[in-house]
């Protein structure tokens, strides 16, 4: 039974236990995620329009079988990478999906308010209203949300000229959480490498496990804090470097794990505070001008 607690739910992913289900064609967390969410996958109708004026679109409907990256049809995947640290090489398997950040830039910066952080903690996309601008992907440090063209409300407006589809990503099985169940990937993991519970409990578990294995934690401070805590016996600096050098479909570094990844909302936060002082400054300046007017200076 999942308990959200005051800070919502969270997960701890123990990379010392995850073996990437090497004995299976598709890791178990990936296959159950696909089964569980199949009804939510996009079903575009042909022909899928090309966006004016660039003449491009993002269509994954003919690559539904891909499981080695995130797509609108694959909301979690496992990265297998060889990491060299202190002269030793270790093979690390990393389940990747939305981290469900504490202050998610994807949700906060959606111009149409179609992405929100739920009370329980998972960040969810309203696929009925999303226009597929993909800004959420650009502001995510891990480029998690994936776009499918040819579906969504933009098809009812001006498909060639406005929008580009709908964004899709993991919602941490929010429907299951609301029923008191755990996410499908947690339940299916044969190594019990993915733990689920209240975020604070998962944070404590991550620290406890990191202490046990003299390991490292990722997700606690990244992007301003997330609801997903990875624990690894090798440092994430080394993992990030290995991921950046690692080829996926002939391309380098699809999705890294940069330590202390910055939240795009951090830089304007100072200006947000200045915004509070702007009205005070305006009234003060007006008072000075009005005083001078009364004195006949103007």
């Amino acid at each position: 039974m999942a308990e959200a607690g005051q800070s919502g739910v969270g997960a701890m992913i123990d990379l010392s236990k995850c073996d990437g289900c090497k004995n299976l064609a598709v890791p178990k967390c990936v296959s159950v995620c696909r089964e569980k969410n199949a009804a939510n996958f996009p079903q575009p109708k042909e022909p899928i329009p090309l966006n004016f004026p660039l003449g491009t679109n993002e269509d994954w409907s003919k690559k539904k079988q891909l499981t080695n990256r995130l797509t609108p049809y694959n909301w979690t995947y496992v990265q297998n990478v060889k990491v060299t640290e202190k002269g030793k090489t270790a093979e690390v398997s990393i389940p990747r999906r939305c981290m469900h950040c504490d202050n998610p830039p994807c949700a906060n910066l959606c111009p149409f308010g179609m992405q929100t952080k739920s009370q329980e903690g998972p960040v969810v996309i309203d696929k009925d209203g999303c226009l597929g601008g993909a800004k959420c992907r650009s502001v995510c440090p891990w480029q998690i949300p994936q776009r499918q063209a040819g579906v969504g409300v933009y098809m009812k407006l001006a498909p060639k000229y406005l929008g580009g589809g709908v964004m899709f990503k993991c919602d941490l099985c929010l429907d299951r959480i609301r029923k008191g169940e755990v996410p499908a990937c947690v339940e299916a993991c044969p190594q019990k490498a993915i733990h689920f519970g209240s975020k604070e409990a998962m944070r404590q578990l991550a620290h406890q496990r990191a202490q046990e294995i003299s390991g490292y934690i990722y997700g606690e401070k990244e992007n301003g804090g997330t609801s997903t805590f990875y624990v690894s016996p090798v440092s994430f600096k080394s993992i990030h470097k290995a991921l950046m050098d690692h080829e996926v479909d002939g391309k380098n570094g699809r999705m890294g794990m940069k330590p202390l990844a910055e939240n795009v909302l951090d830089s304007p936060e100072g200006m947000a505070k200045q915004m509070l002082f702007a009205p005070i400054a305006g009234i003060f300046a007006a008072g000075m001008v009005a005083y001078k007017t009364m004195k006949g200076a103007e």
């Binding site: 200006m271 200045q274 915004m275 702007a278 009205p279 400054a281 305006g282 009234i283 300046a285 007006a286 008072g287 001008v289 009005a290």
Partner: peptide
């Protein structure tokens, strides 16, 4: 730009 606008609007209203 929002900081400038807020300043200008409050200045205008107050003055």
């Amino acid at each position: 730009a929002a900081i400038v606008l807020i300043f200008a609007v409050t200045y205008h209203l107050a003055v």
